[in-house]
Design a protein around this nucleic acid. Structure first.
Length: 278
DNA sequence: CGCCAGGCTTCTA
DNA sequence: TAGAAGCATGGC
């Protein structure tokens, strides 16, 4: 929406290579961003609204300033990582080279741990439009008003709810999973910030103590919410990729960037008509 | 109507 | 301990 307030809103710009917002926001890693008619994207993260647009190789961030960029958005967009270098390393492998070429502007967003865990619990046996709807209702019902948008409700807020309060979300059997996750996080039984530095298998086992969290949801939470770029979540699409292109398993030499490789492969398998998997 | 959706839990042999 | 059934909901 273009209004007077939009024209007055502050903007921060920065150079960003290997950065295409349509690919970043539409590859299934996040659920709170929507494309505007002018091609820019609006969303909420870390309790702040933002509108983002690419102008050539410049990333323009509306509704923030240098302080906000330094505190939140630089890490959120993973701007400290050289994706060109990652792609050069992955491109030894012809399938990875092709997948990366198909979506050259994907970046892995560093999202809030609790929001990411909760979102991927909701994602199980579900489709992306409905996932976005459920999360939107979760924020509208239990988040804080941040001025024309809602923050993602904290684990503490969800943990205080009475049984049945999540009914308006229409999230089905996932309701009890969300509550169990919120209880374990809010009580301190699980410290999500500690997962960033824990041995990976220990971090996985910790998350899998939550009802409704298995290997795939745990790896998504670790990859997108805890900065564990070596996580390689295996879902139905990746299973097809592995069966077709890597019958002997995914090459270990690429695992240091496994999560980035996974996003290239996931998007390629799902969306590229020529890949033969969809 | 039936099938499927970025899975997981539970039941069964 | 592997493999199938069941799970809420909504779009097609």
């Amino acid at each position: 929406m273009t209004t007077e307030t939009d024209q007055r809103e502050s903007v921060y710009t920065t150079k960003a290579k290997d950065c295409l917002l349509d690919e970043i926001f539409d590859c299934g890693q996040c659920f709170r961003w929507d494309r505007n008619e002018d091609g820019s994207w609006s969303g909420v993260a870390f309790g702040h609204k933002l509108r983002a647009a690419m102008r050539g190789d410049t990333l323009a961030l509306y509704g923030t300033d240098k302080a906000g960029f330094d505190a939140i958005w630089y890490d959120y967009f993973d701007l400290g990582r050289d994706y060109g270098e990652v792609k050069r390393r992955l491109s030894d492998d012809p399938v990875l080279a092709q997948a990366a070429e198909y979506s050259p502007g994907i970046r892995i967003l560093r999202q809030e741990p609790w929001e990411t865990l909760c979102s991927f619990i909701i994602s199980q046996n579900n489709n992306i439009p409905r996932i976005k709807g459920i999360i939107s209702r979760l924020c509208e019902n239990f988040g804080e008003d941040i001025g024309g948008a809602w923050s993602f409700p904290s684990a503490e807020t969800i943990a205080r709810l009475a049984p049945g309060d999540l009914k308006p979300l229409r999230c089905g059997f996932r309701e009890k999973y969300i509550l169990d996750a919120a209880n374990k996080v809010a009580s301190g039984q699980i410290d999500l910030t500690a997962l960033a530095d824990m041995p990976l298998d220990e971090a996985r086992r910790t998350l899998e103590t939550i009802k409704g969290v298995g290997p795939k949801v745990a790896d998504c939470a670790l990859l997108f919410g805890c900065g564990r770029i070596e996580c390689f979540p295996v879902d139905v699409w990746i299973k097809r990729v592995l069966a077709c292109f890597y019958p002997d398993g995914f090459p270990e030499k690429y695992l240091p960037w496994g999560g980035i490789a996974q996003q290239y492969l996931f998007n390629y398998a799902r969306n590229c008509p020529e890949c033969g998997l969809n």
